[in-house]
Design a protein around this nucleic acid. Structure first.
Length: 288
DNA sequence: ACTCAGGTATTAC
DNA sequence: GTAATACCTGAG
């Protein structure tokens, strides 16, 4: 396949580090020239900034422009969202200043489900390693610039993989979760297509929670970071609990702050944009 | 040797 | 319903 190119000129709210290292994705890697290369769907792309312009190039199944516009959420007005959130309080203002270039990617639902099951009680380097090994073992090859990349395996490609094989890839105790969830999806016990078309977030969340290895935090990450794109959810992990306690709750022992309490404050303060607010706060608290 | 990391499932009050 | 506990793995 031929290499395609697309240049986004004078981009606002688009910083490579903010997008790829704010914790939403696992398959984008920094290159020596500060650009990032990643695989999504059947595409391998390199993204580079030149001043305020963004250069996308790589192997794309379809026309690169719509592919990029969709995946990078380019049609959404992040400037407006940031303005709205910044008005809430100085904490939001500060965190948005730090992560001003964040965009929430439209990641494949299936891939996001599996990736965040793997993320449970795990660390980022290991999560990334596991996902790469999964792709290398069961995905398809794509050649680009003399290197071989691998697509994320489909449910069908994982159909006959055993729990033992997962364990060998370093999945640890998540091996059985991956196995069970894959088969629930293959059986249509959980129908991802229906889920994708269901506007009722409560119902979709309930469906996700039925999947093995998916609890409240993982479900909310899937709702926020996949093509489901629900900005009203508020995934609570250790970092979010930490930052919410530091800023708003101020209890001595952050681990004792209840989820309900955090959710209540998030809803009151951030409303329908809670998910975005979470992402700015999370990234700021973890990185800054 | 020991703790920790983007939590979840299970078991026990 | 809410609280305590085990759980792969590998890096520091």
């Amino acid at each position: 396949m031929l290499e395609q190119k697309y240049k986004l000129e004078n981009a606002n709210s688009f910083e490579l580090k903010d997008i790829f290292e704010c914790g939403q994705c696992f398959r984008w890697n920094k290159q020596e020239d500060e650009s990032y290369t990643g695989v999504f769907g059947k595409n391998v792309l390199n993204v580079k900034k030149e001043g305020k312009d963004v250069i996308f190039k790589g192997i794309c199944e379809k026309d690169i422009k719509p592919v990029v516009e969709d995946y990078f959420d380019l049609k959404r007005d992040y400037e407006q969202i940031k303005k709205q959130l910044s008005n809430i309080d100085n904490n939001m203002k500060k965190s948005i200043l730090y992560g001003q270039g964040i965009r929430i990617l439209n990641q494949d639902l299936w891939e996001t489900i599996i990736s965040f099951i793997i993320s449970a009680n795990n660390n980022i380097p290991r999560i990334k390693g596991i996902i790469e090994r999964l792709s290398k073992n069961y995905g398809d090859e794509i050649n680009y610039n003399g290197k071989i990349y691998y697509t994320f395996p489909t449910p069908e490609q994982l159909k006959d993989v055993t729990v033992e094989e997962y364990r060998k890839l370093g999945l640890g105790f998540r091996d059985i979760r991956l196995y069970e969830t894959t088969h629930m999806i293959l059986n249509k016990e959980i129908d991802l297509e229906k889920m994708q078309n269901n506007p009722n977030t409560i119902e979709v969340r309930e469906q996700l929670l039925k999947l093995s290895g998916v609890g409240p935090k993982v479900a909310d990450c899937i709702l926020l970071f996949s093509t489901l794109k629900r900005f009203e959810v508020f995934p609570i992990d250790v970092w979010v609990r930490r930052v919410m306690n530091d800023l708003y709750i101020k209890q001595q022992d952050e681990t004792k702050v209840s989820k309900k309490q955090i959710e209540k404050i998030a809803k009151e303060k951030f409303g329908d944009l809670a998910g975005l607010a979470q992402q700015y706060l999370f990234y700021w608290r973890r990185e800054a």
